[in-house]
């Protein structure tokens, strides 16, 4: 079996989404304007959702868009608007200790890339394309059989987090 070296549409899509994710991730980090950062994060999240689709994780791609873009990003935008005085034009968003941070990041990047490229990962041949057509039935089945306890704990975690967030963010009651 000779390896297929021609580029298919899915390969182009991978490179497109990968570039989009990394580029808009860079905008999130380096943009001076926080609102620009938040909108760049939206593009990153969409690109990651597209990569999930390429990896046959259709259900998680939809969940990603619903939870991250629909929920977390809106929360972050609320946070931006609540913590920046609108009249205050100059949004201070500078950088601190750039040099040590770059060194730490370079070390982490080198370690991760080394581990990822040097390890001989076990891959089931042909698993990518044909093994699973859709993952929603598998996930649903696993959630009510093997993972029923983590599932219930997750619901409690969400409830407690919601109550805690409301408690913390609420204005103190005047005596």
């Amino acid at each position: 079996m000779t390896p297929d070296t021609t580029l298919h549409l899915t390969d182009y899509l991978f490179y497109f989404f990968a570039l989009l994710a990394v580029f808009s991730g860079g905008v999130v980090v380096f943009s001076r304007n926080i609102v620009h950062s938040a909108f760049a994060l939206m593009f990153t999240l969409f690109a990651v959702a597209g990569l999930y689709v390429l990896l046959n994780a259709d259900f998680l791609a939809v969940t990603q868009i619903l939870v991250y873009v629909g929920g977390i990003l809106v929360l972050i935008l609320f946070g931006v608007m609540l913590t920046n005085k609108i009249v205050d034009v100059q949004i201070k968003a500078g950088s601190i200790h750039v040099l040590p941070a770059s060194i730490i990041t370079a070390v982490i990047a080198g370690t991760l890339c080394g581990v990822f490229t040097l390890t001989d990962w076990f891959v089931v041949p042909g698993a990518d394309a044909s093994a699973v057509k859709t993952t929603a039935p598998h996930i649903g089945e696993a959630l009510i059989t093997n993972y029923v306890l983590p599932f219930e704990v997750a619901s409690v975690v969400l409830l407690v987090a919601m109550l805690g967030a409301a408690m913390i963010a609420r204005r103190e009651r005047k005596k």
């Binding site: 990394v22 931006v80 500078g94 750039v98 990041t105």
Partner: peptide, 15 residues
């Protein structure tokens, strides 16, 4: 790594 760099470098808690 982009995320790590952002966490270490940026001053704004929301970023």
């Amino acid at each position: 790594c982009v995320g790590v760099l952002g966490v270490l470098v940026r001053r704004n808690a929301i970023v």
